[in-house]
Nucleic acid binder design. Structure first.
Lengths: 135, 135
DNA sequence: GGTATTATGGACATACGTGTCCATAATCCT
DNA sequence: AGGATTATGGACACGTATGTCCATAATACC
């Protein structure tokens, strides 16, 4: 249920970036201060997001970070996946990693299936634009 | 979203115990084999469950583990809480650990709140009896 | 071209979850 | 009482997430 600290850092940073876009790139250290995350650690997170195509990074004087696309076209799953890995898509309750087919033996599925589907739908359908007001 | 390995071990063990109750106590090593978990590690998990009042443990020749109550009166949250800690009850998406009030500023709440509530309701209302068929 | 500025990357430290190994305590049976 | 059986607890090993520190590469500005 709980996202890793890196995932939360990433979400907070991207959401803040989306809420304060003004055409200029944002410095890593400013972003770290605004989002209240250690700057040296956030820089790694941001680099990962840049490699993943969510952010664009530029070095030098007028450098910093920007969203690679409008916030309405960035889904939470894209931000979170590099840090959560396969754990982002939950499987069977009692057999993590297994596909968890509805028809099967596990009687936990009726209840667990709803949780699982609600969660995955949240990550796959929610966009950064719907989050950016949050803090 | 993902429960810790210890929580899953605990759920599997308790569910298996519930599905195979026959009046006799079950040996830790047999339980470990059935549930496919390292015996020396599962023993710690089972000890925690016994301390938590979910299981009763008895030593000696006819010893082993039993459910402390009928499976229909053991809720998943009781099994999982000792291993998940406060993480078992998710908070605000972008501020883990915060109460996450609906009225507040965070625009993630409409979508995230449903996920959160579905998850906590699952843990608090589902009983072992509804799980024990699973494997 | 040179210098300041910024992101990038590597090395390292720490904490914790998971797992292993072994000695000890409690209990049952003869 | 004594020995076999079983759970309990402590010490240790290992990998990974998180976080820190510092050198290096890329870029803008003069």
């Amino acid at each position: 249920m709980i996202l890793s600290a890196s995932s939360v850092h990433a979400l907070r940073a991207v959401a803040w970036l989306a809420a304060h876009e003004n055409g200029e790139a944002m410095l890593g250290r400013d972003l770290a201060r605004q989002v209240n995350v250690p700057a040296d650690y956030l820089s790694k997170v941001l680099a990962t997001l840049a490699r993943g195509g969510v952010l664009t990074a530029s070095r030098g004087v007028k450098g910093g970070y920007r969203l690679a696309r409008p916030a309405s076209r960035i889904r939470l799953i894209e931000v979170v996946l590099p840090f959560e890995g396969k754990r982002a898509i939950p499987g069977c309750l009692l057999r993590p990693g297994h596909p968890c087919r509805e028809s099967g033996a596990c009687s936990a599925h009726p209840a667990w299936g709803r949780v699982k589907d609600t969660y995955t739908a949240f990550l796959e359908k929610t966009t950064i634009a719907q989050i950016k007001g949050g803090s």
